[in-house]
Design a protein around this nucleic acid. Structure first.
Lengths: 253, 253
DNA sequence: AGATTGCTTTGCCCTGGATCAAGTAACTTT
DNA sequence: AAAGTTACTTGATCCAGGGCAAAGCAATCT
């Protein structure tokens, strides 16, 4: 995906104030002074590599993580290894919010491609947010957004058929790439077919067959991980066909 | 269900400090003084009746609602009426958290049986929470809990079969009733088979057949809305059979 | 270069649960 | 109390998508 990156590796160690993700991330809506305050508690990681765990289910909850570059997968590793993928996280997205309640992580998080993250010790973030109202507000917004997103996924899994699920998934990625300055119609998937299927409640084979079918129908071109959306409008129509409903479009910057 | 109520109608207008839900609700972990502070911004509603809307999708977001007595259903009413039930809310549970982000409600909420709710103007709650750290903490916890709960539902819809879904649903209700002082094994459903099916991603017929089957197998007794769980242990085993996994037990007080 | 390993695709068959279609029981209205 | 309405159950059929098996294709190792 690197050839499409606008938000580039320059970001790895920059302060929040100079980070191009600022408008999608925790600092959104803060004054420059408040961002500097926030900056004092943010820790930047060295790059992590494919397969690394950011944290594991059951680990003590210390930090909220924000993706800076790369992609992270969060998943519930079941009791016996039958994992359920809960999300794919792109730059600017937060991970670990479900751990606040109990103090330990309910899911695991694994790196899909070389990734840098910001770590924010939650206790300090909490302290800071009670002195900076706009930070508190932004925290509420981000937590609320996560809830809204999960609810959209519930509708996806509860009501949509295989075709609608994959179309919805691709459009979600497309929109999120676009908001990050990447091409909305030409990108590389950092997750496997297996992970996509798992996330969407489908078998690998079904995902594979659908990619083939979408390609045959001229909706897109696939070549392994490389996706080119050829007809985004028609993909959107798929969501609004059938029993209508359609996944309400949601901004997940 | 009224014959089982321990948390009774006495609650309808009591202040938070005297409310028996206090340990499940927003005041959890607050000092008595802080609870009184909170109390000044809480508005208590007169009882609402079956079919009433608490709010509708698209309404401007003003208040967080907390069920005091009764049951509320939240749902996404799709574009054309193909609704998706998102949750059933018992006393002490909050509704409308997904609206914080955008300032309007993403789902609708409807009363299932005569219900009293507390309304908490969100702006005032936000202000108050920046002066009471333990209130802020509790808000973060509740928002996080909602995320965790939704993630459990994603696993349910993504991985479990019909039998596991219904067992999980009944056990969830059972536990939540118990924590509220009701019988965990003898209760009335305030939602229809249709709503249960919708919530669990199943057809009404499937839900009906499963109730019959569970009854034939001696797991429970059903008579319309009246449920008696006869073998909770065996119901729990259903969740841990098959591909293992099993819905991790979670406290949703 | 050839072999090993790990995705992905494709063909084939099968099943869980949806859908369709009646029938029945409870609740509402008149 | 009869008639209408809505919710639930039960039976019969169907099919979208799952599971299995084998082959294809990249990438890495020897």
């Amino acid at each position: 995906m690197s050839e499409h990156k606008v938000i580039s590796f320059d970001n790895i160690k920059v302060a929040c104030r100079n980070c191009s993700l600022t408008s999608l991330c925790l600092p959104m809506g803060l004054t420059p002074e408040d961002v500097d305050q926030l900056d004092t508690i943010v820790r930047r990681s060295r790059p992590l590599h494919r397969g690394d765990h950011l944290f594991r289910q059951g680990d003590e909850f210390q930090c909220i993580y924000v993706v800076k570059t790369g992609t992270v997968k969060s998943f519930d590793p079941g009791e016996d290894g039958s994992e359920q993928v809960l999300g794919f996280h792109l730059p600017g997205e937060m991970i670990g919010l479900d751990a606040i309640e109990t103090g330990y992580h309910h899911c695991s998080a694994k790196i899909l491609e070389t990734t840098a993250v910001c770590e924010i010790p939650f206790t300090r973030l909490e302290e800071l947010s009670s002195t900076i109202p706009s930070l508190q507000h932004q925290m509420y917004r981000l937590l609320s957004r996560e809830i809204g997103h999960d609810e959209d996924m519930l509708t996806l899994l509860g009501k949509r058929n295989a075709e609608e699920r994959l179309a919805s998934f691709l459009l979600s990625l497309s929109g999120r790439f676009q908001r990050r300055g990447f091409s909305p119609s030409d990108f590389y998937l950092s997750m496997s077919r297996h992970e996509i299927g798992n996330y969407l409640g489908l078998a690998v084979e079904t995902v594979s067959r659908l990619f083939t079918r979408f390609q045959d129908e001229g909706l897109l071109k696939v070549e392994r991980k490389h996706i080119q959306l050829m007809d985004i409008e028609r993909l959107k129509q798929i969501l609004h066909n059938d029993q209508g409903g359609g996944v309400r479009e949601r901004q997940i910057p």
